[in-house]
Amino acid sequence: MSVNSLKFGLAAALAILSAPIVSAQEALSPDEMAALCHGGGSICVSATTPVARTTQAVQSWMSLDVGAAWAAGYKGKGVTITIVDDFSSTSRFSGNFGIGVQTQRHGEWTREEASMIAPSATIRSKDFSTGSAVPLAAGRNVLNLSYGMYTTAGYSVNQIGWAPEEASIISYATRGSAVVSKAAGNDAVAVGGVTGGQQDYLDLALIGKSTAIFVGALSTNGTTANKAQLAWYSDYAGSNPLVQSHFLVVGVEGDKTGLYGTSFAAPIISGYAAIIGSKFTKATPVQITNDLFNTARTDTLANYDPSIYGKGEASLSRALAPVAIK
């Protein structure tokens, strides 16, 4: 297969990772999306859907951990979360993050979720249909990737001719210049595994990168009394130690929001990373990433196994807490 045809194949298979699982595998039409991303700029912000930036209440779908960690003070201030997602297609679906039923595009949902977790963070929207490089903001950056790049299984990552968009993201994760929160996928396979003869090559390209975080979904937020299980659709860490050490899980309580999928797991981690970055203003993306890994909990998970849960369930309160104090 030529490089050009492989690029086309990847673009055609751009898949959002939300679940109503029926739509998770549906590829959006690049032409359709491009037509709706006006101006040809690299950043396409939807002006039609209000973002709940002022909603700072802890919602029932959030981990209790968020409420415990929220105190008067910063909630992501000084950190920019860039949501790379669909902000231009005609595909919309309904859900409720606790502020009323809304019908929005995929990217508008993930953007709203991240902004509710980290209400003081600066949120940018990057329409993924443009393919242009993702610019970083001044200061600390978090990239949210609630999508995958699928094509026929069997290629080496080096064979992929990445668009400037994904090339820039992979570069940031490699150099450690931004925290990259990547939805693990909704095919109930190991990260990067084959499903329907295809693989998510963006997952594969991010394996072993210093600031890449693969985010799986739990069916509930875990507690020590009520331990959580991996959501039935969620991809899991698998046997690769490089994935296990960069894999986190969070609760995606779709029974409360009507929104399922690891698409809605990644923005939670993006929000957590922003909050950590707002507290530790000198922290590098690598340090923020490692803080999340080092403080993930395993005692809130049913039958913890690193090949399923990776490092465990992300804990914001522990990520903000000291190792020791005297």
């Binding site: 929220w70 105190a71 003070g73 910063y74 707002s278 507290k279 530790f280 903000l320 807490a321 000291p322």
Partner: peptide, 11 residues
């Protein structure tokens, strides 16, 4: 740090 606020979100 302020002992009481060390685990909060404040820098």
């Amino acid at each position: 740090v302020n002992c009481r606020l060390a685990a909060g979100e404040t820098a």
